[in-house]
Nucleic acid binder design. Structure first.
Length: 284
DNA sequence: ATGACATTCTTGT
DNA sequence: ACAAGAATGTCAT
């Protein structure tokens, strides 16, 4: 719970670090900017991500981003077989089973779909969770982020994607998902997270590819374009990645520009940096 | 560091 | 059908 409340300050820290990314700010400078003591700053970060401020600022540098890209190692995992089958590097990752929604539903813009939604505090601010189905068959269709006070905008953004669906607030249902997603202790292959992708064919192939990028790794937009056998569609890939309705679970934050630059993020570049830094802590 | 432009796919009209 | 735009990439300056 303290971890969730920390994001407001972590966000300021990440902003500060990316603003001054060229001249490695010292812990003292960071603490001063935050208006905290040096030890309070230390504690804030370890509580938030199990990462010291220094380790965190290293994790969000260009160099580190390039390192994520470099390790060629495995080709992108084929996302269609990930249930139960995992590479070592995936051991600590969030496990997901996913299916694509029949194109008909996409064309109807969510018509006939009942969606429960709810906001929950998470390490990256407020998470908007959207779920269809109940009990065993409940499946995640949307995940968005915003800062406290911007909930309405985020909800409108998401509702605009499937304007014909029926929306009901239901914190009991969405809370289960939130807990499972943001607490690495709940990540396990035995209880994979059920996810349903609603989008065009092209988008789904792109999101499929994203799901195959393990924690602690990243791919460039052109890597992804090559993987779906449309090597020149880099720009269209960027658009599709940005359109991803299940942010974080479908790890769109692991898509980087060829130079390692973070290029863009629908829910704010700062959040993308925070996610990568947080993941560096989870991975280590 | 900045800017022009090539290129592919989605989406709204 | 068509045109605009997108979380890119590359090359020139």
């Amino acid at each position: 719970m303290s971890r969730d409340g920390d994001y407001a300050q972590v966000r300021r820290a990440v902003e500060f670090l990316s603003l001054n990314w060229n001249d490695q700010p010292s812990l003292e400078e960071l603490a001063e900017y935050l208006g905290l003591g040096v030890t309070a700053t230390q504690k804030l970060f370890t509580r938030w991500a199990g990462l010291s401020p220094k380790a965190f600022s290293q994790a969000v540098t260009l160099d580190h981003a390039k390192r994520l890209l470099r390790d060629e190692e495995l080709p992108i995992l084929d996302a269609t077989f990930e249930l139960g089958l995992s590479s070592p590097s995936r051991l600590h990752d969030l496990f997901v089973t996913h299916e694509a929604m029949p194109p008909g539903i996409w064309k109807l813009k969510g018509g006939g779909l009942d969606i429960s939604y709810g906001f929950h505090a998470c390490p990256f601010g407020q998470a908007l969770v959207m779920v269809t189905g109940e009990g065993e068959k409940a499946t995640l269709v949307g995940l968005a982020f915003c800062d406290t006070g911007e909930e309405k905008l985020a909800l409108e953004d998401m509702q605009g994607r499937w304007p014909n669906a029926r929306y009901t607030e239901n914190l009991a249902i969405t809370g289960q998902f939130a807990k499972r997603i943001f607490d690495p202790a709940h990540w396990s292959p035995e209880t994979p997270l059920r996810v349903t992708l609603i989008g065009t064919d092209f988008q789904i192939r792109v999101w499929d590819t994203l799901l195959g990028i393990p924690l602690g790794k990243a791919k460039t937009y052109s890597d992804i374009a090559t993987h779906i056998e449309k090597p020149k569609a880099v720009r269209a890939v960027g658009a599709a990645v940005g359109r991803n309705p299940i942010s974080f679970v479908v790890p769109c934050h692991r898509a980087l520009g060829k130079s390692g630059a973070l290029t863009g993020y629908h829910w704010g570049l700062t959040r993308k940096r925070a996610m990568l830094g947080w993941e560096a802590g989870v991975a280590g």
